[in-house]
Design a protein around this nucleic acid. Structure first.
Lengths: 200, 200
DNA sequence: CAGCGACTAGAGCGATCGCTCTAGCCCGGT
DNA sequence: ACCGGGCTAGAGCGATCGCTCTAGTCGCTG
């Protein structure tokens, strides 16, 4: 039962600023390529604050950053899928939205979870765990949408696997090629794949 | 016109050992997470040798490592696709092969290009360039296979985009989940997607 | 208003980073 | 026999890494 006094808000403010900055920087530079001092500097916080909020150090902060990316993409996923009854059309809207976001950042801001998880398998297992949970949650959201639209449970779960994997891969490909084409093509193919299960 | 004296072979041996070690380590730890000293130590070479062969430093070595990964996967791609006339069946064999390789390394060795390219957009543009070339070459191999199998040029090129993107994404998902399922499901869906263009 | 816990502030630790530099080994050619 | 260049060898540079530590500020509570 916490009160929402200004004190608490300020606290939450600094903590959140640190996490958001960490998420953004790790998205662009990866986990290993981002330093704690750079995060604290760009977040307008001090090193003391960072270790006050994240006594577990870099790994705990990285985990929080991945969780933030998880939450944000989960919300985008839910919004986009809810706005269109037909799952195939919704996927087209989703890839278009991702392509727009990527272009707007000059192809720098890819998937925050992907960026943070690469190369941390042995050095930061907690981050791997958080990334695994994120992917599983996203698959769950896609699968739920498909089930609601009348797909069989098994088909929905398998399609959700491929939808999320293809989105990850197409986002990376688009980033590297500095072109929206991989995402646009992936959207059309995913829509076609999903539609092929509608009557069969 | 170089002679193949033992002297030259030894030279090539050290250089190649360095590149192979760099490729393996960056595959597991990412570009930023791998140090030059660690590479030279594990390759059984000295720091002097590394900078003798790669005067451009870490970025040049990383670029060579990405090119090696490019060549190796290009070969695997060609071999697997050549062994089976039907592209859909060939894709199933390919995902099975990737899943096997991933499991054999205890889910540590994902795509070497992906690992190296994440987080290097601003810090090592030469690596981005090499990765873009790798993805383009792989798409070319897949597209050529599809054209040979009778697909229209446009369909073949678009499918190649999605095949490569989905393989990348599924490999990453399998690595994070420590499970072959994402790759297996992706293989079946890619086969289905490709087959859907056969008569349409 | 005294006291206390939450938070800020940043100097500085040992280790490691990418990289440079000098010294010397080894081997083929003349 | 001697030289010269390809390659090895590793000490050490300044910078940065993740992290610890002490000191101090702030605002709420009794």
């Amino acid at each position: 039962m916490k009160t929402k006094a200004p004190h608490d808000l300020d606290t939450a403010g600094t903590r959140e600023r640190i996490v958001r900055t960490a998420s953004l920087l790790m998205q662009r530079q990866g986990y290993e390529g981002t330093g704690i001092k750079q995060i604290s500097r760009e977040a307008g916080a001090t090193l003391g604050s960072v270790y006050h909020f994240f006594p577990g150090g870099k790994q705990e902060l990285g985990t929080a950053a991945v969780r933030l990316g998880d939450e944000e993409f989960t919300e985008l996923l839910r919004e986009t899928l809810d706005a269109e009854p037909d799952p195939a059309k919704a996927l087209l809207a989703l890839t278009a939205s991702l392509a727009e976001g990527l272009r707007d950042s000059d192809w720098l801001d890819g998937c925050p979870v992907t960026s943070a998880v690469v190369g941390t398998a042995t050095s930061a297992p907690a981050i791997q765990q958080a990334a695994a949970e994120a992917f599983a949650r996203w698959r769950g959201v896609v699968a739920a949408k498909l089930v609601t639209a009348g797909f069989a449970d098994t088909d929905a779960e398998e399609l959700a696997h491929t939808v999320i994997a293809t989105l990850e891969g197409a986002e990376l490909a688009a980033q590297v090629a500095r072109s929206a084409t991989p995402l646009e093509v992936a959207g059309r193919h995913l829509a076609r794949l999903v539609a092929s299960y509608r009557n069969g």
